[in-house]
Write a protein that binds this DNA or RNA. Sequence first.
DNA 1: CCCAAGTGAGACGTGAACGTCTCACAAGAA
DNA 2: TTCTTGTGAGACGTTCACGTCTCACTTGGG
Lengths: 183, 183
Amino acid sequence: MAVDRDHVLRSAAALLTRKSTATMDEVARAAGISRATLHRHFAGRDALVRALEALGIEESEAALDAARLDDGPAREALRRFVTEIESAAGLLAFLYTENQLFEGEAQNEGWSRIDARIAALFRRGQTSGEFRIDLTPAWLTEALYGLMASGAWAVAEGRLAPKDFTYMIVELLLGGALRREEP
Amino acid sequence: MAVDRDHVLRSAAALLTRKSTATMDEVARAAGISRATLHRHFAGRDALVRALEALGIEESEAALDAARLDDGPAREALRRFVTEIESAAGLLAFLYTENQLFEGEAQNEGWSRIDARIAALFRRGQTSGEFRIDLTPAWLTEALYGLMASGAWAVAEGRLAPKDFTYMIVELLLGGALRREEP
DNA sequence: CCCAAGTGAGACGTGAACGTCTCACAAGAA
DNA sequence: TTCTTGTGAGACGTTCACGTCTCACTTGGG
């Protein structure tokens, strides 16, 4: 009888990834509940987005934990992270663009924590000599977000096979498009 | 007296890059005209977005022409293209996300032409042995869009210096994050 | 069995943005 | 100067999604 809050959030995430302007009614139907019930659990669209944001942050931090960013080569840590985050990539792509229009308002501090952890990984790679130092950790972090969003949309629209998601992102981010003699 | 259509479009592009949900009134004020006059030139929000789309396509094709994609090493052609497109990157970032919600409707064929030309550049680079072949031209094209959007937003929000825009995008896309002994 | 809690369906009022319209005014052309 | 054209300001009605509310129904617990 009781609505599964987590199921509602994941349905909403899946829908909003495809159509970021979906109405509350569409969100409710996608979750298989009525608009009234949706409002009983989330005061309004804003509250829903905030809940999705919290979910996105939670999943990101879980992926960061599972990827053990401090262990082994930075490149392998990055690969583990992208593998872990894949299932949440669509949600993150939605939140990434949604954040663009929160102009003025301070962004959730959770994102700052996540940014810092990812940037620290790139910095560690630079310090160890694994990564080049002319691309700043902040930019590499930003680029990772952009590639994840592109990858998530490409998968959603059938332009990229889901199984290639991690490989394409990690290989491009780490190795770039240029062919190299020595791997 | 007569309104400068091009000026209106560029104002709208600049505003919508920052705030994609801006109202027609905000767009009008940003261009320094009244809402009534804006409606005299663009029947509605949809028509405005279509006009912006046409502008984005026009600027993209102009950049493609100016970059002479068929000349010299593919990597240099790519660098020329990103340099040429930089001034329109914000507009393209807006259109890139806006396209996500045109589900169902066929996208403007102009984008198909542009996609094809960029993908052809990557394919040329692969054929010549310059680029690796395990990353598909379609994905490299998608990734380029994603990085341009990330770059444009990062610049708009002050996280990236405008002068570094081209370098960061091209270097990451071509060379990746890994440090290499031989350049 | 009965009751309480949660849900679905739908009505209702609200507010925002839209698109249209009118009218007065300013600028350039005749 | 006079006339024409385009603009600004604002009023107006419409649409759409929102948030709230009611009421009947279902489901699970006591």
